[in-house]
C-alpha cells in the first residue's frame, strides 16, 4: 500500500512540476482529439441537419443504424483504418500509417455516429414551426438548417463535447494506427497502457489523473449546458 501511495505522490509531483514527458503527451492527446472533433463536427453537424430536415425513405432505419454505432468498438475502427492505410491497403500510397494524421482520421470515424446521432436528437427538440417559419420568411434549405442548428446550439455543443470525450479517452484505435511512438504518436491512453505494463506506475498514474480530470471537466460542461438550457 505504501508503494502505491508513494507512486501516487510521485504522480502528483510530475503534474505539479510540469514534467516535459507528461505535458508533451497531454498536449499531443488534446491536439489530436480536438482536431478530430473539430473536423468531424464540421461534417456531422451540417449532415445531421440535412438528415433531420429532409424526408426520405429509410430515414428511421438510418437513424437506428447511427445510434447502434454509438458503441462502435475502438479496436474495430483501428483495424479498419489500419487495413485501409497499410502499405498493401487501398490508401497505403499516402504513407500516413503510424502518424498523428491517421490517428485523427481514426478518431473521426469513431466519433461520427455520436456526433451525427446526438445532433439529430438535438435538432428534433426544436419546435417544428421554426422550420416552417424560416422557410416562409424566404430562407433557402441551407439557411433554414442553419437557423435550426442555431436554435439547438446548446444541445449541439453538448454533442460536440461528448464526441471529444469519446475521442480523448479511446485507446484501441490510437494504439493500432498510431503505434504509440514516443514523442510522435504517444497519447494519454496509449502511454498509460504502456507505462503500466512496464511497471512505471508513477507516470501511468500521473497520466491517469490528467485523463480522469479531463473526463470530469467534460462531464461538468455537458451537465451545465443541459441544466441551463
Amino acid at each position: 500500500m505504501s508503494e502505491l501511495w508513494k507512486a501516487f505522490l510521485r504522480a502528483v509531483e510530475l503534474i505539479v512540476n510540469l514534467d516535459p514527458e507528461v505535458t508533451g503527451i497531454t498536449w499531443r492527446s488534446l491536439h489530436i482529439s480536438a482536431t478530430s472533433t473539430i473536423l468531424a463536427s464540421l461534417i456531422c453537424v451540417p449532415l445531421g441537419g440535412m438528415i433531420h430536415f429532409r424526408s426520405f425513405s429509410g430515414k428511421r432505419g438510418l437513424i437506428s443504424i447511427i445510434q447502434t454505432f454509438y458503441s462502435l468498438p475502438t479496436v474495430c475502427v483501428g483495424l479498419l483504418v489500419f487495413v485501409l492505410f497499410s502499405r498493401v491497403g487501398p490508401l497505403g500510397r499516402f504513407g500516413i500509417l503510424f502518424t498523428p494524421t491517421v490517428m485523427v482520421i481514426g478518431q473521426m470515424i469513431l466519433i461520427t455516429p455520436i456526433l451525427l446521432g446526438l445532433t439529430i436528437s438535438a435538432l428534433s427538440g426544436v419546435d417544428r414551426t421554426i422550420k416552417d417559419s424560416t422557410l416562409s420568411l424566404g430562407a433557402t434549405e441551407l439557411q433554414a438548417i442553419w437557423a435550426i442548428i442555431k436554435e439547438a446550439r446548446f444541445a449541439v455543443w453538448a454533442a460536440v463535447v461528448m464526441g471529444f470525450g469519446r475521442a480523448v479517452s479511446e485507446v484501441g484505435c490510437a494504439m493500432m494506427v498510431g503505434g504509440n511512438i514516443r514523442g510522435f504518436t504517444r497519447m494519454l491512453t496509449t502511454a498509460i497502457s504502456l507505462e503500466t505494463q512496464k511497471g512505471e506506475l508513477e507516470l501511468a498514474l500521473a497520466l491517469g489523473i490528467i485523463l480522469i480530470s479531463l473526463a470530469l471537466v467534460i462531464n461538468v460542461i455537458v451537465n451545465t449546458i443541459q441544466q441551463r438550457y
Binding site: D127, T129, I130, D132, S133, S136, L137, G138, A147, K150
Partner: peptide
C-alpha cells in the same frame, strides 16, 4: 410572401 403562424414561434435571439 410571408406567413405568420397560429402559434407564434420566435428565434431564441
Amino acid at each position: 410572401m410571408a406567413m405568420v403562424f397560429q402559434k407564434p414561434v420566435v428565434f431564441n435571439a
